[in-house]
Amino acid sequence: MFARHDLVWLTSRGWQRVRAGAPAHALPALDTWRDAGWPAVVRRAETDMAPGEVAIGFALPPRPHDGGKLRVGCRVELADIGRRTRALSLVGALDAVPPAWREALAALEREAAGAGLGLAVYGSVALAALTGQAYVTASSDIDLLLRPLNRAQLTAGLDLLARHGAVLPLDGEVVFPDGRAVAWKELRAAFDSAPGTRVLAKGLERVALVVPKELLATLEDPRWLN
Rank of each mutant, 00 (worst) to 15 (best):
L219H: 10
H25K: 12
G165R: 09
G157H: 03
A181T: 06
V136G: 05
W9V: 05
T218G: 04
L108S: 11
H25N: 10
L154Q: 03
E53Q: 03
G21T: 09
W33C: 07
V54M: 00
L88M: 12
V211F: 00
G92N: 15
V210L: 02
A208H: 03
K202D: 08
L219K: 07
A166E: 15
T11R: 02
L108N: 08
F176H: 11
F191P: 04
E186N: 03
I56S: 00
H5R: 07
L154T: 09
G52C: 07
L30G: 05
V175T: 13
A106P: 06
V167D: 11
V91W: 04
L127G: 09
E77H: 08
V54A: 01
P212V: 02
G172F: 04
G82F: 01
P28A: 10
V42Q: 04
V41W: 00
L10W: 05
D80V: 02
V211G: 03
G157E: 02
V42Y: 02
W9N: 11
P28C: 06
D6K: 11
A104T: 13
A79S: 15
L119G: 10
L127Q: 14
Q133T: 04
D221H: 01
V175W: 01
K213L: 07
L10K: 10
V211T: 08
Y122W: 09
H25P: 09
G68L: 11
A29T: 13
R34G: 06
L78A: 11
P39W: 08
A29H: 13
R17T: 08
S140C: 08
D159S: 14
A129I: 10
E214A: 08
G57I: 03
A190V: 15
R198S: 12
D171S: 14
P64I: 05
M1D: 01
S193R: 10
P98K: 15
P222G: 09
A93K: 10
V211D: 02
A59G: 00
V207K: 03
V72W: 02
A190H: 08
D143V: 12
L108D: 10
P61G: 02
P222W: 02
P39I: 07
A104V: 05
V121Y: 01
V175H: 03
L130W: 07
W101G: 11
V182Y: 03
P148D: 11
V167C: 08
W224Q: 06
G196C: 09
L78G: 07
L119C: 07
D178T: 10
A107C: 14
